[in-house]
Design a protein around this nucleic acid. Sequence first.
DNA 1: AATGCGTGCAACCGCTCGCTA
DNA 2: TTAGCGAGCGGTTGCACGCAT
Length: 206
Amino acid sequence: MASQLTMQEEELRRGQWLEEEDERLSMMVGVFGERRWDALAKTSGLKRSGKSCRLRWLNYLRPNLKHGHITADEERLIIRLQKQFGNKWSKIAKQLPGRTDNEIKNYWRSHLRKKTVTYKQESSGNSTGNSEQRSSILKRDTVLNSSSNSEDTYSEKGDCSSADFFAYSSNEVTLLDWIPSWSYEQSRMEHHMYFCSSNLCSCYPP
DNA sequence: AATGCGTGCAACCGCTCGCTA
DNA sequence: TTAGCGAGCGGTTGCACGCAT
């Protein structure tokens, strides 16, 4: 029994999907629908796990998926929603038609890393050795972990003048600093549009 | 031209949740 | 009530590619 299972597992293909596999999977989903992935995987003849089939379909083959770069608007929305929901990528993805949770998650992580390191370097003004890079990555992880708990950052603070708007926390500075195309005034406008209008901030006047 | 390094992305893994018998 | 199963989710890994040296 155990040896049979092992043999079956060994037969499963892993890694990159071939075009023929994609075509077969699409056809099978057309027949079975998006459910019973294990059964679908077995009856299709694909040497893939049900999980793998599901993931391939949802993240790549599903109709109406966008495959291009994340736009500036989408980026702002992702940042806002991440702020609101934390790392609930599927929840965030529901607000971005055509984007998958995996895509958003990857985008967030890769851009977060890059921009956080940049921020750290700029703010410290020091040369960057290995220990500095490590601390930047640690900081990245700290921001990631804490960001989901920081939903109340704005509402817990008092009035936010334009001067101290960016100074609530290092996380906020970093978040807004991630948006390269934003000028200071644009950032203020975006802040009021997203946070103040949705009662996430107690700026006065609103 | 060769090599090393950083980045982006597709895919995998393990855990959790919800449904059903 | 609970065990088993399918599905979903977030975190992690591995690979391909581009760029710098």
